[in-house]
Amino acid sequence: MRAVGIKKSLPIEEKESFIAFETEKPTPGSRDLLVKVKAVSVNPVDYKVRQGAAKDKELKEPKILGWDASGIVEAVGGEVEYFREGDEVYYAGDLNRQGSNAEYQVVDERLVGHKPQKLTFEEAAAMPLTSLTAGECIFDRLRFRENEGWDQTILVIGGAGGVGSIGVQLLSTLTKVKVIATASREETKKWCLDNGADIVVDHHNLVENVKKEGIEEVDYILNFIDTDAHWDAMAELIKPQGHICLIVETRKPVELNMMKNKSVTIHWELMFTRAMYETEDMERQHEILENLAVLLNNGSIKSTLNKTFKGLTPESFKEAHKLQESGKSIGKNVISF
């Protein structure tokens, strides 16, 4: 089969930052699906792995990146329960296995959902990783319940990014909490409002801009973009006994004691945790994606696809990664095969 991958961690402008190659079609294990991939999307994890996986030495075998995909099930393992050949699916997969930037991929069925029927493969490929991340943040870490949150406020830092775009939609559709999203450009502000944010503030001078809206403190914070840069602001804006959920690792030590007097709870979220450790509730990701498909099919939420590239080629992936690394990407970028 054809695949696109890396053997060296190179700047995206370099000729061999991505290479095309032929490799053996994978064979599904007992709970695996073999998927004919139709479209993939690019997330920050893609370029972070590309930049670090082969930083010190050239890999003997190319590494296939990609942790968002939609496609058609071609074969199933002997113990598969939820899918059969010919099913259209979408998923984010497992960080420890070869990725989705290939003609075929194997993935554990417990991490997979049936593709929303009303979405194209491209629209569906934009959704899994960010939706799982946002969904786990909101409902598994912060413990929100549907239709709750009256008289509460949540600050979503990075409201126009991939995770923020679906996080704002899930909050505005499934809860009653007031959503304050951050965005700094006119097009990103509009994007956040269109996705259901009640208020949009510039993340520059965050404390001042939130307070200008008449809001002194917030009950919850979802930081989807930069933990270090907004640490002090989060400590000031969070209410006593409030909750903060983070998805971006720190680059330097942060002062946890700033949160002590307020008895703030800090949650970490990595959507790969369940797959990496094969947790007892690994099937939760199948459940989230199935529920998400219902919301996408009935129009309660919409795909966050914003830009599509064409072709299983190094050139397509270079273009998508370059845009993702620029920090100016809105929503999700998808590559269609």
Rank of each mutant, 00 (worst) to 15 (best):
T313E: 10
T273V: 08
E249Q: 12
H267T: 13
D228T: 15
K262D: 06
R274Q: 11
E278Y: 07
Y277C: 05
N298A: 07
I288Y: 00
A233Q: 09
N261T: 08
N297Q: 11
L289Q: 01
T250V: 04
A229R: 13
Q241C: 07
N298Y: 10
S316C: 14
A275W: 02
R251H: 10
C245Q: 04
E315I: 10
A235N: 07
F309H: 07
K252R: 10
N298G: 13
E283A: 13
V294I: 14
L246A: 08
T313I: 08
E283N: 15
T308Q: 13
K239Y: 03
K310E: 13
L237S: 03
K307S: 05
T273F: 12
E278G: 02
Y277V: 11
Q285I: 10
G311I: 15
H321K: 01
I301D: 00
K260E: 14
T265I: 13
L270S: 13
M276Y: 11
M234V: 02
N306E: 08
L289G: 00
K252S: 06
E269V: 15
L295F: 03
K302R: 09
F272C: 07
Y277G: 02
W231M: 01
D228K: 03
K302H: 11
S303Y: 13
K322V: 02
T313C: 09
F309Y: 14
H267S: 11
C245W: 03
R251K: 12
D232T: 09
V254P: 02
M282A: 05
N257E: 15
W231S: 03
E236Q: 10
Y277S: 08
W231I: 06
L292K: 01
D226N: 15
N306C: 06
E290S: 14
K260A: 13
M282F: 04
K260C: 12
M271F: 12
E269A: 12
D226W: 06
S300I: 07
M234K: 03
L296R: 01
N297S: 05
W268G: 11
G242T: 05
T308G: 04
V254G: 01
F224C: 09
D281I: 12
A233D: 14
E280K: 14
I288T: 01
A233C: 05
D232Q: 10
Q241P: 01
K239Q: 09
E283F: 11
F272N: 04
A293K: 00
P314V: 08
S316Y: 09
M258V: 05
T279S: 14
T313P: 08
W231K: 06
V264A: 14
T265Y: 15
L289Y: 00
L295Q: 04
A229F: 09
K307G: 04
N306D: 12
E315T: 08
T227E: 03
S316H: 06
E319Y: 06
T227W: 02
W268E: 12
V254S: 04
V254L: 15
G242W: 05
G311T: 07
K252P: 01
S263G: 10
L270E: 11
L312M: 06
R284P: 07
I244D: 06
S303A: 07
M276V: 11
D226H: 09
M271D: 08
N223V: 11
M258G: 09
F309W: 09
A275Y: 00
G299F: 02
E249S: 15
S316P: 00
H267L: 10
D226R: 13
L256G: 10
E290M: 11
R251W: 03
D232R: 12
G242V: 00
